[in-house]
Design a protein around this nucleic acid. Structure first.
Lengths: 112, 112
DNA sequence: TAAACATACATAAGACTTCTATGTATATAA
DNA sequence: TTATATACATAGAAGTCTTATGTATGTTTA
């Protein structure tokens, strides 16, 4: 698990990227997917995730659809057309930022 | 200039890396060096920089030496032996984190 | 079968980091 | 003489995230 300091500011980018590639996902599913894809190195907390999802919905970047699964409610999130643009911008800005940091910190990444 | 959201959490790493490679630097010099190295894309603000430098000094990671330049005081910061360890850890953690993000976001960086 | 763990949502209080604005003061360029 | 650059610093506000808590169901295991 990385120190929270490092992960700061990346939550929205991660959520939007995942929802750009999946028609719909629910909150818990997002936490599990990120945990799985990062080998447990990034674990989103509910206290950060849910308020962010709500904010993205309020901004028209995501839409929701509540579904009953057994007796439980599951809230699916989907990205809007506007949201896809925002997602692409966020990811590309993050890419540029990482390139800058790689240069600034003189890093050697394991790419390829 | 990147959105501040992205840069969050990287300030300490940047400062420590620069001071690992330079015997001594003063606050204003750090802002200028970062601005120069990143082509203006990362501009550290004083409101974030100075409190961070003070905190790192309080933690024994940095030491200071005030020098008179003309009629002005310049406060040079140097990294301690303990600080160098912390710096190396921070940079290596950041490297791992970036590798994780590159995989998670499926990014193509301009390395090499 | 009771306890523990996983699923699934949510919020509130506090902590931490950063931004904006402000303040002080000198030196230099337009 | 006005603006810009150098050089430090802090206070208040804003934003993000953590920790803790709450509710409720489903499943595994001792």
């Amino acid at each position: 698990m990385y120190s929270s300091e490092l992960i700061k500011g990346t939550l929205k980018t991660i959520i939007l990227k995942l929802l750009s590639e999946n028609d719909k996902m629910y909150g818990y599913e997002i936490t599990q997917k990120v945990k799985e894809l990062t080998g447990g190195k990034i674990q989103l907390t509910e206290g950060a995730l849910y308020p962010t999802l709500h904010a993205l919905e309020a901004q028209g970047i995501l839409t929701t659809k509540a579904v009953n699964v057994g007796n439980r409610i599951r809230k699916y999130y989907s990205i809007t057309k506007t949201g896809k643009k925002v997602a692409a911008e966020k990811v590309s800005e993050f890419t540029e930022f990482m390139n800058t940091m790689v240069y600034l910190l003189d890093l050697k990444l394991n790419i390829g």
